[in-house]
Design a protein around this nucleic acid. Structure first.
Lengths: 226, 226
DNA sequence: GCCTAGGGTATTGTCGACAATACTCATTAG
DNA sequence: CTAATGAGTATTGTCGACAATACCCTAGGC
């Protein structure tokens, strides 16, 4: 679980811990999407006071995982296909730009690090070929490193702090183990090449196509199911 | 003041009201950027309890206007040139995409509404020509309508809910009354044309250039000052 | 039979107090 | 004289209780 990301320092306060527990629960569907959140009930479950729980809820709201209405309460965000596609549109724009910035701002060391990571993915791929080779940690790691490489704190906050969890939730609940594994690997390596060449324009374009391809893949799958 | 935007329902609870007051104070610099926030002091000033104040602080944190560290406290976000340029990079990506989506998703009525708005701007421009004719409300309104026209809730949340206030803060504190007024007006009208033509690709490109031009303008200004 | 009005219950919003952690500054050892 | 240690103070985190609002279900009128 790549939760200990550089943007999220270790949980020190109890509200932090409850936040992380709830985060997991929402992402993996233990707390159902769309369900109402009862503050008294949850506070009792986690053995904390309502104030502390509300603090945790505020963090969840910051991640767009729950929605609050004044004097009414909180609901876990609803998982819908439209919502998933919306996120992909945002990712296409933001990660595309992050990739462009990464091509400009990444240090040589960071680029080397990315190449090393890609090699590890390649060997893992050779190991169990045919099977989707790195849909979970590998893919997330790749995107993560590009985003951090942008050295743009706003981009990092929005993508790693907010959208990231939403993406994981959808992946978990819709059971999306993308069959684009080998294709994705090739795309990743071309993106890294563009970054290494400091070609921001190409890097952005490739990343956008990479994410757009994922989105279209999902759209196709959905269309088939119906 | 275009604060009563469609994404922010009227403040009902006292925490909401304090949030709005602090929002103004931070945006216009009454509460200085970079300053530490003392919960007991502020709670006394606003005549509310600390719990209520903390609720307001949480909203401000969601807008990226303050930053909190566990067991240490909150600080108003620091205004820096680097920070401003970071925001423009994010806006270029997101508003560009919003513009593309607007070209796809806007209703005919919404497009007509935009054209009407532009005509009003044109007459206001004729009225007091030479002077930057609509740097504040006009410009914000235009961008606002495009964003809402994307019909993408994620884009709307991020741009109108979060970045919007940051942009206003920078504009206020750096005293940026862009001298690009007439140019900006022409750019706006071309963007609307592209949207009306349902040409998403062109619309995105024009919006990105429009925002990039603003960014470069700021960069130039900064360079001159130093 | 359906809609409206009202009271009762449950949930959220707000408060003040206590506990835990971080900061300050003086004191002391090297 | 500098640096580390410690007590004291201030600030943040957490708690339980009260107030205000919304939901539910019954009763009554049209």
């Amino acid at each position: 679980m790549a939760l200990n990301n550089p943007t999220t320092q270790a949980a020190v306060t109890t509200a932090d811990k409850v936040f992380e527990q709830m985060l997991h629960a929402i992402v993996d569907g233990t707390i159902k999407s769309g369900s109402k959140i009862s503050e008294p009930e949850l506070a009792k479950n986690y053995q904390i006071s309502r104030s502390t729980l509300r603090e945790a809820l505020n963090r969840l709201e910051k991640c767009h995982l729950i929605e609050r209405k004044a004097n009414v309460g909180s609901r876990v965000v609803e998982c819908s296909i439209a919502g998933l596609l919306e996120i992909y549109v945002v990712r296409e724009a933001l990660e595309g730009m992050a990739c462009r910035q990464a091509a400009i701002n990444m240090t040589e060391d960071e680029i080397i690090e990315m190449k090393v990571m890609l090699k590890q993915h390649a060997s893992a791929k050779a190991l169990r070929d045919g099977i989707a080779y790195y849909q979970e940690e590998g893919d997330l790691d790749f995107h993560y490193k590009v985003i951090l490489g942008s050295h743009n704190q706003q981009l990092i906050n929005i993508l790693c702090g907010q959208l990231y969890h939403l993406v994981r939730m959808y992946r978990c609940q819709f059971g999306m183990n993308s069959p684009r594994a080998t294709k994705a690997f090739d795309e990743h390596s071309r993106i890294i090449e563009a970054i290494a060449d400091r070609d921001g324009e190409l890097a952005e374009m490739l990343m956008r196509r990479h994410i757009a391809a994922s989105r279209k893949n999902i759209e196709k799958k959905i269309a088939q199911q119906q």
